[in-house]
């Protein structure tokens, strides 16, 4: 498995060094830009964003075209490209 990855890594050596900019758009339409490497876990973006917003990460949902993003995914897995946009939604709670 690691061999596989190494091959992929060497094959895309140039791409690996690149950083991509990801836009996180919140509910009010405000955009925050993150510069990340393709292999950075989204967790990093989430926590940095939540910290900026001053809310716990658990209260935020990150969506890519309506599908949820898990924290341990990476931009590469999600096939994110430069300037791609991620939606940030707030947790929805209802009881009565």
């Amino acid at each position: 498995m690691s061999d596989n990855e190494d091959k992929v890594a060497t094959g895309e050596g140039e791409e690996k060094k690149q950083t991509i900019t990801i836009r996180v758009k919140d509910q009010s339409g405000e955009e925050t830009f993150f510069k990340v490497k393709p292999h950075t876990k989204m967790e990093k973006i989430f926590s940095a964003y939540a910290q900026r917003k001053g809310v716990p990460v658990t209260a935020l949902r990150f969506l890519l075209d309506g599908t949820r993003i898990a924290a341990d995914q990476t931009p590469k897995m999600l096939e994110l490209e430069d300037q791609d946009q991620i939606d940030c939604a707030l947790e929805q709670v209802g009881g009565w």
Binding site: T32, F33, F34, K35, V36, T40, K44, I45
Partner: peptide, 10 residues
Amino acid sequence: GTADTPINLS
């Protein structure tokens, strides 16, 4: 975190 100066996590 703006377009000019994105938050650099890399």
